[in-house]
Design a binder for these strands. Structure first.
Length: 570
RNA sequence: GAGCCGGUAGCUCAGUCGGUAGAGCAACGGCCUUUUAAGCCGUGGGUCCCGGGUUCGAUCCCCGGCCGGCUCACCA
């Protein structure tokens, strides 16, 4: 903790001021207030402005110029033009846009001639608050004291707004108190009326203020934010305070999950909760976390998937169910894997996997429209187009295209397959089971260049112990995976509802396990019994939420979309 | 688990071919009533990740450890 801040805390207590008061009445969130006076700028609106560069500063990818015209109205200009000098007069052409709420010209290029009046441009999108009274609270994130006046910004999740404190308005004593006590990072409540400064920024002229919580540590640097990835993950609150991108990502994640719920709810799905602690970890191929129940004196497993429970509910007469929740897999951690991750699984009675493909397209289109408002996204420098229908390609067609070998080869010629794996330099190729070999070869040759949304359909039965045998080919199952940017985003199938077949598949999994596949599934007798009571024809799907959020936020690290990713203790 | 890279002020970073360290922001003191990466003058601030070794001397070189990142392995 910082000594000077602790001293301020002492001073407050001496004055009888509680640095941690109980409540403060806000009239609205900051972003809502701003949006009432700041209209959305249509995308791609070109403007031309001319004025004097009051300041030129370097940004991560170019320069930011504060441009002031003859009427002394300012606008921010973001440009890549080199060699700009303070005090010179320039004309810029660029796209009008809001940066941190402020009207700005982005992608600006030097130009000739007169521009439009900056005041008029601003008047089209920024309206006069007409002295509206507000009561706002937030974290103090900037502070500029100017003798008898103070400017600063307070910030909440929805945005930031400038505050203006004048000695002749709040009185000598209060003004002195503010100067003496407040630090960057404190939570502050202010009451006052809205106006616009000369440069046009919406600002609260403060009539009264209150300390709502003292911050005892200095905040990360205002310009560079918090970069240290370790601190960003360990102290996510600091990341959220300092980095607007991070706030945006997690807000988007929340909105995506809300919209997902809404989409499913509106279509008659019932949201349910099934056990996280399970006596048998099944429903996927993965190593589970093991825990111990003292009272029952038995091991329990953290679920690797909710699948078998959700299908029991289909048997129980719930025709459409879904669950959004964490799965846990006791495996490596890397850019695309976290030991706990979020999935939605949903099941629909009377549908097959073809119905689900269309449904998945609808669902994804819905989410994209609601969350980012468009169907084309940029991911890792590539444009990805989610306009349906998505490409559909059969598993073995894709393999044949890439390797020249057909289904018969992959399913019947184990030795040939092993040689192929060797040629592809697949690690441990000599130890892998037949099923694993197919899977690995597929991943190596096929998944790598699936960038645009693609349904890979009709998987080999060996790889899919819970999927229904394909109606046209007993070697296959009716299953698809949706691959986007090489990530497996969704996995779905027509559910296996024949109890005899299911039992046989579990037995096959046990044989795989004996052959050294630690991730092969366990037998779940009660699940088979449930099927014996009759499960209607059903289709089911799982979608990885984390990876979907990664795609929509153009991040390549799963830890950037999980609020508190797993870290070793310090 | 393996290889490579990193850990320096609260934050972002620089630096020392081995002689115990700097900048900007933040902090502290002063000036400034429309500033906005405010500005101007001045001041303080460090277990250079931890432990050991080599050395007259280690933040720097060597060894070990901790934490993190990337790649690979594992993991649909």
């Amino acid at each position: 903790m910082e000594e000077s801040r602790l001293k301020k805390l002492e001073k407050l207590r001496e004055k009888g001021v509680n640095p941690y008061p109980y409540r403060f009445e806000i009239s609205d969130f900051i972003g809502n207030v701003r949006s009432r006076f700041e209209r959305e700028v249509p995308e791609g609106l070109k403007v031309k402005v001319r004025g004097k560069a009051k300041r030129v500063s370097r940004t991560e990818e170019g320069f930011m110029v504060r441009l002031s015209d003859e009427e002394n109205v300012e606008i921010l200009v973001f440009t890549r033009e080199e060699g700009l000098r303070q005090g010179e007069t320039y004309t810029f052409e660029g796209v009008l846009s809001r940066v941190e709420g402020k009207l700005s010209v982005v992608d600006a290029k030097l130009s000739e001639g007169d521009g439009e009046s900056i005041r008029k441009i601003k008047a089209r999108f920024d309206s006069d608050p007409e002295g509206e009274e507000v009561s706002l609270a937030g974290r103090l994130v900037s502070l500029r004291t100017m003798g008898k006046a103070i400017f600063g910004h307070i910030q909440d999740l929805t945005g930031r707004i400038q505050i203006y404190i004048r000695k002749d308005i709040v009185g000598d004593e209060n003004f002195y108190f503010f100067n003496e006590i407040f630090d960057l990072g404190d939570i502050v409540g202010v009451k006052g009326k809205l106006f616009r400064t000369q440069t046009g920024e919406l600002t609260v002229e403060v009539h009264s203020f209150e300390l709502l919580s003292k911050c005892l540590h200095p905040l990360p640097e205002k310009w560079h934010g918090l970069k240290d990835v370790e601190v960003r993950y360990r102290q996510r609150y600091l990341d959220l305070i300092a980095n607007p991108d991070s706030r945006r990502t997690f807000l988007l994640r929340s909105r995506l999950i809300s919209e997902l719920r809404r989409f499913l709810d509106e279509r008659g799905f019932v949201e349910v909760e099934t056990p996280v602690l399970q006596p048998i970890a099944s429903g996927a191929n993965a190593k589970p976390f093991i825990t111990y129940h003292n009272y029952l004196e038995m091991n329990l497993y953290l679920r690797i998937a909710p699948e078998l429970y959700l299908k029991r509910l289909i048997v129980g007469g719930f025709p459409r169910v879904y669950e959004i929740g964490k799965n846990f897999r006791n495996e490596g951690v890397d850019r695309t894997h976290n030991p706990e991750f979020t999935m939605v699984e949903f099941y629909v009675a009377y549908w097959d996997y073809r119905d689900l493909m269309e449904f998945t397209e609808e669902l994804i289109v819905h989410l994209l429209k609601k969350v980012i408002g468009k169907l084309k996204i940029n991911y890792g420098g590539k444009e990805i187009d989610f306009t349906p229908p998505f490409r559909r390609v059969k598993y073995f067609d894709l393999l044949k295209e890439k390797t020249g070998k057909d289904k018969e080869f992959f399913l019947r010629d184990l030795e040939g397959l092993r040689n192929l794996a060797k040629e592809l330099e697949i690690p441990n190729y000599e130890k892998l089971t037949h099923a694993k070999l197919i899977d690995k070869v597929f991943e190596r040759v096929a998944e790598e260049d699936l960038i645009q949304p693609t349904f890979v359909i009709d998987f080999p039965k060996l790889l899919s112990p819970l999927a229904k045998t394909h109606r046209e080919d007993p070697d296959l199952v009716e299953r698809f995976e949706l691959i986007v940017a090489t990530y497996e985003v969704a996995n779905a199938y027509t559910e296996l509802n024949d109890p005899m077949d299911q039992r046989e598949r579990f037995l096959q999994q046990l044989r795989e396990r004996e052959m050294g596949d630690e991730e092969a599934m366990e037998m779940d007798e009660d699940f088979v019994r449930a099927l014996e009571y009759g499960m209607p024809p059903t289709a089911g799907e799982g979608i990885g939420i984390d990876r979907l959020v990664m795609l929509l936020t153009d991040t390549d690290t799963i830890r950037d979309v999980i609020l508190f990713p797993h870290m070793r203790p310090q």
